[in-house]
Design a protein around this nucleic acid. Structure first.
Lengths: 70, 70
DNA sequence: AAATATTTATCGTTTTTCGATAAATATAGT
DNA sequence: ACTATATTTATCGAAAAACGATAAATATTT
């Protein structure tokens, strides 16, 4: 199971959706979808832009949760 | 910049493309493309299947390299 | 040399992103 | 309660890309 932790990282950076959408170049609507785990895929260009904007790593945004263990 | 380290993880697990494609349910060709950083996006279902098959985390597969620092 | 593994390419279909936009809902401030 | 702001949700359409199927080229190993 893949979990999106974009909300956590945004909170750590005190960044709003509005700010992030400006920096990343994604619309508010689409960022919101990603943030709430509604997206089914992601382009590497988008992931790159998010990591850059939040100055974080991939694992801060996307997490694999092994459901065999949990 | 997003870097794919699938090859490293496969080596650690001594797993061939053939094996991995069986377990993940992707064709050899498409896995090869992903492994060699030719893919431009990834579905979370695919990422999930890869992490499960290799028993690893997202960051073992996908890495953000900050080009401002390197 | 032969078998095996991997890479690269092309075609067609399906899926999904993503922008644009609008409306609904939630949150915070006065 | 009202208002402004922020976020979520939804729909439409276009563009991008995954992905399967397949085949051929290349590399690797035995």
């Amino acid at each position: 199971m893949i979990r999106i932790n974009l909300d956590v990282m945004m909170a750590k950076r005190k960044m709003s959706l509005n700010q992030l959408s400006q920096e990343v170049g994604l619309t508010l609507a689409n960022l919101s979808i990603l943030k709430n785990n509604k997206a089914k895929a992601i382009r590497f260009t988008t992931l790159d832009a998010i990591c850059r904007a939040l100055d974080c790593r991939v694992e801060d945004i996307i997490e694999y949760v092994d459901e065999r263990k949990e």
